[in-house]
Design a binder for these strands. Structure first.
Lengths: 233, 233, 233, 233
DNA sequence: GATGAATGAGAATTCATTCAT
DNA sequence: CATGAATGAATTCTCATTCAT
């Protein structure tokens, strides 16, 4: 909801040096106000883009469609984003930010939570985020450079990768707290990540129903088995 | 209608329509022959579609491109397929058939292979099929996108699902051979499936490099851990 | 008018192998007819393009405008030309072909024309062609890679250059007949070319009226002075 | 209105609008000062336009680009120029002014320069100006395109013509000093002008390379031949 | 069965210009 | 005087699909 958090993802390329002004404070105030307006309008467009993407998929989220939903003419969008790609990038940035927030916020059952509890909380938050917002997963897949290579700039791609990794780090930390070396924790984190992604994909595509399985149960099974294995040694 | 017949397809992309033959037999024979011809031409088009899809990706595999590669004009394609999506559907059908063939063919190290060996062989074949042909995975994702498969008829969708399940059944059989009940084997198969899909997706999207992990190692690790767990009990 | 002459400039990229046919002669006939139709339609589009260019200039000769004038939708044009650039190239190719025809056709006053007479005839034809069709000069300038670099393919550019040179060769031949070495004749031809271009440009842009000069007189003056100089030595 | 004032323009592209000053004098003085400010700001914009045009060509010199380089927003430009064409017109005015300056400044090898030397100097300066700044020639061609100069007012057109003629007058003067009547000198000047323009155009469009000729050599050859002819008679 | 010309809707992007502030 | 958001019309180009032949 609150787009201000993802300010750093896409620096507005249309920013101009403010003209000279007599008093300094009013100018600042105006700049602040205008910048805020600008951010609000960017957010408006991103909202439109997100809704278009969620309802119509990436193919349907054309610039025209986004503009229409935002109440703009297509050309107007380019005042706020250089590209369609930039919009997609910002969208994914937001999404990953929300994911990080969700993971960071997640805590164990009480104040004296064990490492295992915290692992459950962190990994569970990651898993639940995408389970509850399946389209966010699609967004990531479409944009990350594999499935459908879309030309995010290398820098943006790097930043987005960073955010994704950041969302997994809390789990890794708890794996280390459970006695793994850093290297082992990395392996275990990537395996966990793969398991989560696999479950989510199977769930999203309806494949999991073929097995008459509940995704949640699969996830918990994996996690508990992992914890048991760690506590055993 | 029945895609199962398209099992072995003409691989030579330079094949051209066979020259016309003079009518020899009564109407029945003629109908049979014509139907066979029809199947052959469908196969020809699917060959073209597959090669286009593999070389150019989904975006590049336009009807025009497929027609060009098949030696047809765009309009002619519509004599064999109702639309582009139907071609994609048939393509996926073929793909799943090849997957099944690969899994069925896979055997353990020798004639006296243990259940664990066979599980390794069957699951490994499944995994390797998609690892070595990432485009096949893309195809599946494109068509199994979300709950409602892109323009696939329910029947086709059902058949495609059947084929996918069939490719997993050999692994499930071996899990049972290793002592699991059917219900347990189903759970374990779906977890295995999720793990494989997750690893493949992470690999295809380049995400796995972020962890500096090898997909093969992750897969083997999961599988061996699973086998060890089963043999322990 | 007759576009068949410029057949070699743009090979139709949409040509396809003809499907198998029972009898050979009818197929040929059909291919010929279709090819002729195709050529006619290409010619139609080029006519539209030329009229658009002549009336509106290069900027006005958009694909949309050309399509409109040809009675086509924009997309239809792409069945005949790969590009806007290709249309421009074909236009220039035609133009240069007409220039060559004009120069080749030009003869001296009678059968026993002297080298000087032939030089007058050939150079005069070149000059008159552009004087009488000033827009053809514009066409060349806009497309040749200097003023407004438009992306003609290197091959096309080369062929167009060849045609331009070909139109100047008859003059060079006569300069040699008047006693110049090949090297000297090349220098003199390029100087003559420059003079002609200069006069034409000044005439086309109305600059020559500033001097109250007639372009024809300037041209003749230069040419006669050149001939006199050659005959003197 | 009167472009002749824009003789020396602010070359520093980093110059910014001067800060606001407090009003000091009566209305008259204020009007004068504001007009001066206005001129300065017009010059600033023209600087930006010239640099944009030189670096990016006519297509790249969009209003937005010019505004950006001038440190203005697009809308602000319209306070100083009615439209983009007017900017181009002013740019051409400047360009011709620099041409005149270059020609006027040009002198013979020493104080006792002969008429022939001065002709070489003046004509050479004209030629070198455009040879060294081909973009200036483009500018002229863009605006002097065809009979009806692109959106230039008749008055501006007339003034620009005047400036162009003025740049050729020194050569004409020397031709008269070499013994030609005024009428003869005009003819010879226009022929010389045509030759220069022809050489420059051929050079700019790369056509001259087809002859493997150097533009300088062609120019000198013409000039020396002309001087020789005049001195002979 | 096959052709292939043609449509029509759509894609991203650019930009001079206007105008409320 | 200056802003800068917004328009609206333009640009080239792509492509699934149709249909008369």
């Amino acid at each position: 909801m609150c787009e201000c958090r993802i300010r750093s993802v896409n620096k507005s390329t249309t920013a101009r040096k403010p003209g000279p002004r007599k008093s300094v404070a009013p100018a600042d105030a105006r700049a602040v106000r205008e910048s805020a307006l600008n951010q609000a309008r960017r957010a408006l467009i991103l909202d439109a883009a997100r809704s278009a993407f969620f309802e119509l998929g990436l193919d349907g989220a054309s610039l025209r469609e986004i503009a229409k939903r935002a109440g703009y003419t297509p050309g107007a969008i380019y005042s706020y984003f250089a590209n369609l790609e930039e919009i997609y990038g910002a969208l994914l940035g937001e999404s990953l930010q929300r994911l990080n927030d969700a993971v960071e916020t997640a805590t164990g059952p009480d104040k004296k939570a064990s490492a295992a509890d915290l692992l459950r909380a962190k990994a569970g938050a990651f898993y639940a985020f995408y389970r509850d917002n399946p389209k966010e997963l699609d967004l990531g897949f479409y944009l990350f450079d594999g499935m459908k290579p879309r030309g995010l700039t290398p820098e943006l791609n790097h930043e987005l990768n960073e955010r994704l990794m950041a969302a997994l780090r809390p789990a890794q930390v708890q794996l280390e707290a459970l006695g793994l070396s850093t290297a082992e924790a990395v392996v275990e984190t990537s395996a966990l990540f793969a398991q989560i992604v696999g479950i989510l994909v199977l769930n999203n595509t309806g494949r999991i129903r073929l097995f008459k399985q509940s995704p949640d149960r699969l996830f918990e099974r994996y996690l508990e088995s992992l914890i048991a294995r760690l506590q055993r040694s």
